[in-house]
Design a protein around this nucleic acid. Structure first.
Lengths: 326, 326
DNA sequence: TTGTACGCGTTATCAT
DNA sequence: ATGATAACGCGTACAA
């Protein structure tokens, strides 16, 4: 492994001169600099990240921590993060699982973006206390070293509920998410608020865990209760909506006919459904980009405000007008 | 940032004693060891990865390099990798993009698994020459420091082709992948071999790039030529097959009725299709696990042989018997 | 331009 | 048998 020491020997200068030359310092003449660079290239020199990091106390690496690598959901998000950090000379690495948490306190990374309920609030606060900079996408946490970039879940859930109600549905099913998910809790809170504003609407809450299977289960339950006016169904995420969607179709019933359905997230998968699934959309790319931007600003010492990612309704034929207003 | 020096001061011992204690060396009394550990915990000590790495010349981190983060395809693969490396005390980080390549020569990672055509063969060979250990999943490359774990693409393509031919199809369309993809080239080679064995079969090759859009384009082309016996279509990956699938259905034609369709990869998405897409399956989890295992063995100095991931045919109603043999 | 202290942890060597 | 001293890994940056 060739080090600056080797270069120094070969070029007949001291290691400090080599270091200055490699770092474009004006402290060396152009002449010696070019000679040193030539030697470095010839020897195939590559700096040792650990040594530089040890001295500079920075790695130029940002970590993104995800619950899992299952992906479908994360592509755009990570792409958004990466583009921003790359532009500033940082690299993005993606990690998952408890074991990798060490990278943060051991200072392998200069900051982290968290979308992973495997981190407890306490753990994150401890890291923040140690001086590590964090951006959280999945919880509210107040600390000088923590910034949050959160979805406007409540607005989204309101949009979804209003859409069903405006289309004349007076009986609604809500397929919930896991209680330990911040997003799920927020969406549910907004659902309740909407229902408070609409006492004429009857609502039934069904359990769910954001996975497809729980959407299927909810679908069966709803099918077994079908009677009279078609109900509206709001699944708190698209994956469950897809499970429900298919269960309904597999039983010979029609989405948008025998019931109306709205999801949340506008994941890529919905492109493969027909009729179009109404859902709540937001830019995952922007979410990731914003998170990176906030993190880098914190690292460079700037003050940042918490950010919110706005959402909008995507209409679809999975919802159709009913009753009086139809 | 508390270091072993702080612990030494607090505990009234030398820094080396602290290091020995933290590393469970028998060179310190149980008594002093427990005292030192207590102090370490009290001070919230966490070792500095850069310092340890600098001395030990290892980071206990494995890098997985992917073409992009788009995910849908990679979830299981990465999970397989992670489980294996975690079990051996390593962490897995996922990287994408040219900029992150530096992590390898700069020795931030102890080894890498490559599934990313953004690496040229030359670049990889250079890293291998420098002593870095690599496992490649997307090319053949012979070097003492490179191991390959490749899909049995040829067997898969043969299975797909035979399946269509056995079901009586005498006119076949092949929707190709990008020419710079190893997997695509391998599959195409096997297709040609199968065709050589079946001179009675007429084949038409259509361009494709492994993305959904190119499957849609191929679908339109095929629809415009439909006449007589339903043809068989082999898309060299599932994503294109899905594009073709939907194009056909959107035009009022039936998959398995007006044409038979086979894909390759058995990606999750196919669960959302009806009728079932016939495709070529393999364990992505096993693929990742095998790659990690091979890499760790190389790192620990063991000799390893190249590995192959076997594939099998998943039958589906997207293919139905035709003509004489039906 | 160069010598050198420093960042932090590991480990061989030496002293008690 | 215990534990301290010091060299080392590699690059950076201040002082000379």
């Amino acid at each position: 492994m060739v080090s600056i020491k080797d270069i120094a020997k070969q070029a007949g200068v001291s290691i400090s001169t080599v270091s200055y030359a490699l770092n474009n310092s004006p402290k060396v003449t152009l002449e010696t600099k070019t000679r040193i660079l030539a030697v470095a290239k010839e020897l195939n020199y590559v700096p040792n990240a650990a040594a530089r990091q040890l001295k500079k106390q920075e790695s130029l690496i940002i970590g993104a921590f995800l619950t899992d690598f299952s992906g479908a959901f994360y592509g755009d998000l990570l792409q958004g993060m990466k583009e921003v950090v790359n532009r500033k000379g940082y690299d993005l690495i993606v990690c998952s699982g408890k074991q990798s948490h060490r990278l943060l306190p051991e200072r392998m990374i200069d900051g982290a973006i968290i979308l992973d309920s495997a981190f407890s609030d306490e753990e994150l606060l401890e890291y923040a206390d140690r001086g590590h900079r964090l951006v959280v996408l999945d919880r509210e946490l107040r600390h000088d070293n923590i910034n949050q970039v959160l979805l406007d879940n409540k607005a989204g859930a309101n949009l979804a509920m209003d859409y069903l109600i405006e289309n004349g549905h007076r009986k609604l099913y809500i397929v919930c998410g896991p209680p330990d998910s911040y997003d799920s809790r927020q969406r549910l809170t907004a659902v309740r608020q909407t229902l408070d504003r609409h006492p004429e609407v009857e609502a039934v809450f069904l359990e769910g865990d954001f996975n497809k299977a729980s959407g299927e289960a909810a679908g069966k339950k709803i099918l077994s209760e079908l009677s009279g006016e078609p109900p509206g169904v709001f699944c708190l995420n698209d994956e469950m909506a897809i499970g429900l969607f298919q269960t309904v179709q597999d039983h010979g019933k029609g989405i948008g006919v025998d019931l109306s359905l709205v999801g949340f997230d506008n994941i890529d998968l919905t492109r493969y459904l027909s009729p179009r699934l109404a859902t709540i959309e937001y830019s995952k790319h922007r979410w990731g980009a914003m998170a990176s931007q906030q993190l880098l600003q914190m690292i460079s010492g700037e003050q940042v405000e918490h950010e919110r990612i706005y959402v909008s309704l995507v209409e679809g034929e999975s919802v159709r007008p009913r009753g009086a207003e139809s």
